[in-house]
Design a protein around this nucleic acid. Structure first.
Length: 665
RNA sequence: GCGCCCAUAGCUCAGCUGGAUAGAGCAUCGGACUUCUAAUCCGACGGUCGGAGGUUCGAAUCCUCCUGGGCGUGCCA
């Protein structure tokens, strides 16, 4: 059920019959100007087309246009008589009988009343794409959660969705573990318990590299701080000397510099912490001294791998499956899957051809020893082969695009990737366009950064990114503290055992992180706040999950099953007797609208908003409309139907968000 | 230097691509449980939508400029 397009169809017909029809260049654009009413007192929807048309049509005005339009409109089967308001708004109120019939239909439908799209598209979604062999961290949340939600939502709408996890399985991180294995690894231990051992080797080498880098950076940071402090002192003095408006401005400038000083100090602090951590550990300290040139050595191992060095290739082949096991463990906890996992290494053999092809077309040329594609819109070229002959991720992305065209022939390709890479994708898309590499719509579904409480990108004290797994553990623990509080569990009968408590806190904790992420507009940064995410009240997954649990609980207390309710409605139909019933019913019928809004601009937060509104409408209904004590059987049937539908819609919507429900909590 | 993004209530954030009186949630204050889980519901308080112009019936939304912040920027991904 999609009310706006229903109205749009009717408006389109009516417009074609109006006296001014010939004066409209694009009638469907006007017919589509249907919006949910801004205020319930105006009805359910409003049509805004009379105002622009009134301006367009000679010798007319919006209210006249609206009046003629209403005369031509045939809506009496779905809608009360439309009313003209204000400058020319047409207010539309759906008939109760119409809503009641649609809800009865919805009850008999296993897709919550969502009709599959008429012309399905083939949509390839590239998301998550972590570097394997490297622990997943907080930065991977957004791409994984947003990508998964889009995949599920578009598929549910009826599109053909192909998901592909473009793994970083061929980069420097393998140089790191190969180096680690050769110098610090015990082949026997690696064979017996590869996953933790490889992770350990990665950490050792990473720490040593960080140590040397930090030592190099300390003087730089110190100089930077000194410079900024001088500027700050000068700015402060200026601010004190100035008066009035000028003083305020200067104070602000001084504050801004103070922030920069603090930021530079934080960098220095974290570099010192990195150094101290190694210094404090005699074994690591000794290793650091013995491997002074580790940064370059790691790059050498990577180069050897790319040059098909037999030893490194063998190690890569040995390690890769275990690295995949490790990330799959996280995916299974996040309940995320992919149709394909074609990593960078898969495209390695195709890269030479890509470069040759671009050269042949005259698009790529040599510059300072590197092969570059120069594009008019950009100052910097897209480099596709380094002066040392190595390929870059731009090259891989081009090869990937060609492969996807040949293999899948998609209508759309979505890249769910950090906004910081937007320039890369602009270039990639420009080259794809210039070479006619692919005819799909290419979209960079970009997203902002996850920030800590201080408004800076989330990091640990020593400056490393926070591991994804520990974040999940923290969320589950926080959920346990809140949800399994004995004071509230005392109400449940039979009591919750430990196993159920663990299940509930896992689903609530993981759900909290996903919900919080998806509730923000993807393009903006957001501050990560665990206690808010698992909070009992407000716009959280907990609230939505709890609403679902309440629906099951009501059915239990009324001793009915869904099948019983379906049967009762088939016999008696649905009849509203309370405003809260109508409001909830209308809300439930708008599910498809929310899903289409998600597809419109690839924004899952529209679905989160919908879930919250639905849970809220249900809470109000639950507060005002008692089921067990309903005055008549008919009233009870209607209310039971609304409870069943609410449960189904919330469960389905949460499922599309990647969040699981529990029967009680 | 150039490019991209952002600035909305004390805090965290929405605002459906130009519509009616700018909304939630936290926080604060005040109401409502003999009733299916009060993790709820109903009120109150809270705004120069960073600033200045412009476009028009109508601007948080579109254009220009300014201020302040973030990010990116020729051989990482």
């Amino acid at each position: 059920m999609h009310f706006p397009s229903l109205f749009t169809g009717r408006f389109s017909d009516a417009l074609s019959r109006c006296s001014f029809a010939s004066q409209l260049d694009d009638p469907d654009r006007y017919a589509a100007m249907i919006r949910p009413a801004g205020n319930p007192k105006f009805g359910d929807y409003q049509a805004n087309c009379a105002m622009p048309i009134g301006k367009l049509v000679a010798d007319s005005n919006p209210r006249q246009v609206a009046a003629e339009l209403i005369e031509q409109l045939q809506l009496d089967d779905i809608c009360e008589t439309p009313e003209i308001a204000g400058p020319g708004f047409i207010n539309l109120k759906l008939k109760d009988s119409f809503l009641q019939d649609r809800l009865a239909e919805m009850l008999a439908d296993d897709r919550c009343g969502v009709t599959p799209v008429a012309s399905p598209k083939k949509i390839l979604i590239d998301y998550s794409s972590p570097n394997v062999a490297k622990p997943m961290h907080v930065g991977h949340i957004r791409t994984t959660v947003i990508g998964n939600c889009l995949a599920k939502t578009l598929q549910f709408l009826g599109h053909e969705v192909i998901t592909d996890n473009h793994l970083g399985d061929w980069g420097t991180q393998f140089g790191i573990i190969i180096y680690g294995y050769k110098h610090f690894g015990d082949p026997e231990v690696v064979r017996q318990d590869p996953v933790p051992e490889l992770a350990k080797l990665y950490r050792i080498v990473h720490q040593l590299m960080g140590y040397h880098k930090a030592i190099k950076n300390v003087p730089k940071y110190e100089a930077e701080i000194a410079r900024l402090e001088d500027l700050h002192a000068a700015a402060q003095q200026e601010a004190e000397g100035a008066e009035g408006k000028e003083a305020k401005k200067k104070r602000k400038a001084a504050e801004s510099l103070a922030k920069k000083v603090a930021s530079a100090r934080a960098n220095l602090e974290s570099a010192r912490a990195t150094i101290a951590a190694t210094d404090a550990d005699p074994v690591m300290k000794q290793r650091a001294e013995a491997h002074a040139d580790i940064g370059k050595a790691v790059l050498d191992e990577t180069s050897k791998l790319h040059a098909d060095d037999p030893e490194n290739i063998a190690l890569w082949e040995q390690f890769l499956p275990h690295c995949k096991d490790e990330i799959n463990r996280i995916y299974s906890r996040l309940n995320v899957t992919f149709d394909h996992t074609l990593g960078e290494s898969f495209y390695h053999p195709m890269l030479g051809e890509i470069v040759d092809d671009l050269k042949q077309r005259g698009l790529a040329s040599e510059s300072d020893g590197a092969i570059c594609v120069f594009l008019d819109q950009f100052d910097a070229p897209m480099i596709i082969q380094k002066s040392d002959g190595a390929y870059l991720y731009a090259t891989t992305d081009l090869a990937t695009l060609r492969y996807r065209q040949e293999t899948f022939n998609p209508d759309e390709v979505l890249y769910v990737v950090d906004a910081r890479q937007s320039e890369h994708f602009e270039k990639l898309f420009a080259v794809a366009e210039a070479t006619k590499l692919i005819d799909a719509k290419l979209v960079h579904v970009s997203f902002g950064t996850v920030l800590g409480e201080d408004g800076r990108p989330m990091k640990t004290r020593s400056g490393t990114l926070i591991g994804l797994e520990s974040l999940l553990d923290d969320a589950v623990e926080a959920a346990y503290q809140v949800v399994c509080n004995p004071d509230r569990l005392v109400k449940l009968n039979p009591p919750m055992d430990d196993q159920e408590k663990r299940l509930v806190s896992e689903r609530v904790g993981i759900g909290a992180i996903k919900y919080a992420d998806l509730s923000h507009d993807r393009t903006s940064d957001y501050k990560f706040n665990l206690s808010k995410m698992v909070a009992l009240s407000g716009n959280t997954s907990t609230y939505a999950q709890y609403s679902f649990a309440r629906t099951t609980s009501i059915l239990r207390r009324n001793e009915v099953t869904e099948a019983d309710v379906v049967e009762r409605i088939q016999a008696a139909g649905i009849t509203f007797t309370h405003a809260a019933e109508r409001a909830l019913g209308l809300q439930l019928l708008q599910f498809q609208e929310a899903l289409q809004n998600v597809y419109e601009d690839y924004r899952p937060n529209h679905l989160v908003d919908y879930v919250y509104s639905t849970a809220e409408a249900f809470s109000k209904f639950n507060d005002q409309c008692h089921v067990l004590n309903a005055e008549t059987d008919a009233i009870q049937s209607t209310r039971l139907a609304l409870v069943v539908l609410t449960g189904r819609v919330i469960k389905q919507a949460l499922e599309l968000l990647g969040i699981e429900v529990v029967e009680r909590m």
